[in-house]
Design a protein around this nucleic acid. Structure first.
Length: 403
DNA sequence: TCTGGGGTCCTAGGACCC
DNA sequence: TCTGGGGTCCTAGGACCC
């Protein structure tokens, strides 16, 4: 049976949601991400702001210079998650195989739904209309025989359009587009391909796949397939709607001003550790590898990892590992721009643990579970964990006292 | 222009084991 | 004194995506 994939991409999603909460923003240049003089980048720009050259990932200060009259607003991720769920609810009516690929885009497998919903093009228009009616948001849809081509075509359909690439027409559709439009080809890869005289997807499709494999290895081989419109291995080749467990959970923070005060830095690491551990517990996951991320004032960035002898979801164990990595990594002088805490190698059980430790950590786990509960109910300020944790850690790390 | 925060996947070297 | 081959785990860094 002919595979049919639909990619749904919300138009200027963050901006459009903000407009629903504040209709006075409509029709104006709007930048979501923060104030024009803040550290940070643009999360989303309205089409009016884009006319001035503003685009996402651009530093806010640059956006402020390009378009001083733009309205700069903070992002509200709870709102975006709420609207993302509304979109998903609509999608679920159209196919049993749906997958959110990020907060503002999704894939639907429409293969074999024809008898229920009509031909794919008709169905795509019905879906487009339903999303508009039920969320008050615009989106663009791409329909094709692979995820890859569906994604590229939803982009070509913007704004607020629907585009169907007929089976057999994939290579023809892709040929005139820049290589950069292929997902996975970023700035670096584009430059390397350009150096070889490859600019359009059509140039790529003409090449022998052995040539690409010789130049770019495994990645080049997949690229040869993508140039012809195939999902060609990797993430694109996975089945739609086969939800996978997360591979990592992390939080990071960039300071408004670079920091050299140890107290501030370590308190920040404690907060980040708490946030990470709380999410581990919420998702019933345990992490074996804890990683510190450190970025200095000159933007040089380092990571340092520690693998525990058992997987954990406890604030104290995450924080303990991260603080000790930090004390080994930081010279105590260089000003710090960013700190991050990352939990990797996630599993659903604690796994091996020494028999001596077991009863102790089981009690701790209970304690933290109730703390999470109280926090959810009364807010984070109700329990000042950071302070007590910090005192604990001082003992453990300095005096090497058993707790 | 002065660069967020949350992720995924890939590579490559070294340790260690058989 | 010269030295294989494969597998897995760990660590660090980088490209890329939204």
């Amino acid at each position: 049976m002919q595979r049919i994939v639909c990619h749904v991409d919300m138009d200027a999603f963050f901006v459009s949601v903000e407009e629903l909460f504040d209709p006075s923003l409509k029709g104006k240049p709007v930048v979501v991400g923060g104030k024009a003089n803040q550290r940070g980048v643009v999360s989303a720009a309205s089409y009016e702001a884009r006319k001035f050259g503003v685009h996402s990932a651009m530093p806010l200060r640059t956006a402020g210079q390009l378009c001083p009259q733009a309205l700069f607003v903070e992002g509200h991720f709870e709102r975006y998650r709420e609207y993302s769920k509304k979109v998903l609810t609509v999608l679920n009516r159209f196919s049993p195989r749906v997958e959110m690929a990020s907060i503002d885009e999704a894939y639907l497998d429409l293969t074999g739904t024809e008898r229920l919903h009509g031909p794919p093009m008709q169905m795509a228009h019905k879906l487009h209309q339903a999303i508009g009616n039920e969320t008050q948001l615009n989106c663009s849809l791409g329909v094709a025989s692979s995820r890859l081509v569906a994604k590229v075509s939803s982009d070509a359909a913007k704004p607020n359009g629907v585009l169907f690439v007929l089976p057999g027409q994939e290579a023809k559709f892709l040929a005139p587009l820049n290589v950069r439009t292929i997902p996975g080809v970023g700035k670096k890869a584009e430059a390397q391909l350009n150096k070889l005289g490859i600019r359009k997807v059509g140039d790529l499709a003409k090449l022998d796949e052995n040539f690409l494999a010789a130049h770019f290895g495994k990645w080049g081989l997949a690229l040869a397939g993508k140039a012809k419109g195939a999902d060609a291995g990797g993430w694109f080749d996975s089945e739609i709607g086969a939800a996978e467990d997360p591979k990592s959970i992390s939080h990071e923070h960039t300071f408004d001003q670079d920091v050299e005060n140890r107290e501030t830095l370590e308190t920040t690491l404690l907060k980040l550790s708490e946030m990470v551990a709380k999410r581990l517990r919420a998702q019933k996951l345990y992490s074996k590898t804890i990683q510190l991320k450190l970025r200095y004032e000159d933007f040089s960035t380092f990571t340092r990892a520690h693998t525990l002898d058992h997987a954990t979801q406890l604030d104290q164990e995450v924080a303990g590992a991260v603080i000790s990595l930090f004390r080994q990594a930081w010279d105590g002088k260089t000003r710090v721009r960013l700190l991050g805490v990352h939990a990797g190698t996630l599993q659903t059980v604690e796994g091996q643990m020494s028999l001596l430790e077991e009863p102790h950590t089981a009690r701790l786990r209970e304690a933290f579970r109730s703390i999470d509960h109280i926090r959810d109910k009364y807010g984070a300020a109700s329990i000042a964990l950071a302070k007590t944790l910090k005192a604990n850690l001082r003992e453990r790390l300095h005096d090497k006292k058993p707790d």
